[in-house]
């Protein structure tokens, strides 16, 4: 990690799946364990690091998160928490799914945590039929089986259609 502090001004270029390039300060990129491992093992000699699974819109969000958290040494935890909740506020499910996948791929644990938590908070009180649609899960229960599972757990469905 010492090298990253010495070379604080070093920058690297990330390329999104849709071809957009982002110039990123190294200490910001180090929020990602994937990028850190690449830099440590010197796999980053290439000019541009392609991130084939992450589109530009998502990558911009991810890097915004990383920048805030990389620069956070001087700021307070409370400030970061309010940044996190503001960051995710009003984000729709598609954007959250993109973030979770990007955070998972780039190994950014903090971002994975808050995005997964936001998805959980959003679906927590939704009926299971709606959750099935949100995740595009195929219903492999027969109507009888589904009714039986539901009947067995009737207490958990209190107040649901």
């Amino acid at each position: 990690m010492a090298s990253s502090i010495e070379n604080n001004n070093e920058k690297l270029t990330l390329k999104s799946s849709d071809g957009e390039e982002f110039l990123v300060e190294k200490h910001v990129a180090l929020q990602s364990t994937l990028l850190q491992n690449m830099l440590d093992s010197d796999c980053s000699s290439a000019d541009v690091i392609p991130l084939p699974k992450i589109d530009a819109r998502t990558l911009a969000l991810v890097l915004g998160y990383c920048k805030k958290h990389a620069d956070a040494s001087s700021s307070k935890q409370g400030e970061l928490n309010s940044f996190d909740s503001e960051f995710l506020k009003d984000m729709d499910m598609g954007a959250l799914f993109n973030l979770v996948l990007a955070a998972n791929f780039m190994e950014i644990k903090g971002l994975l945590d808050i995005a997964a938590q936001k998805i959980a908070d959003t679906i927590k009180d939704k009926p299971h039929q709606e959750v099935r649609e949100i995740f595009h899960v195929e219903n492999d229960y027969t109507p009888e089986e589904e009714a039986a599972v539901r009947e067995e757990n009737r207490w958990a469905f209190e107040g649901f259609p």
Binding site: T13, G19, E20, E21, F22, L23, V24, E25, V28, A56, R57, T58, A60, L61, L63, G64, K67, D90, M91, D92, M93, G94, A95, F97, N98, E133
Partner: peptide, 22 residues
């Protein structure tokens, strides 16, 4: 962080992948 490309579409969290098909 700076964007190299000339694309001027702003990251807009409220519309990201909004449509069900998306």
């Amino acid at each position: 962080m700076a964007r190299k490309s000339s694309s001027n579409k702003r990251p807009n969290s409220t519309t990201g992948g909004g449509s069900p098909s998306g």
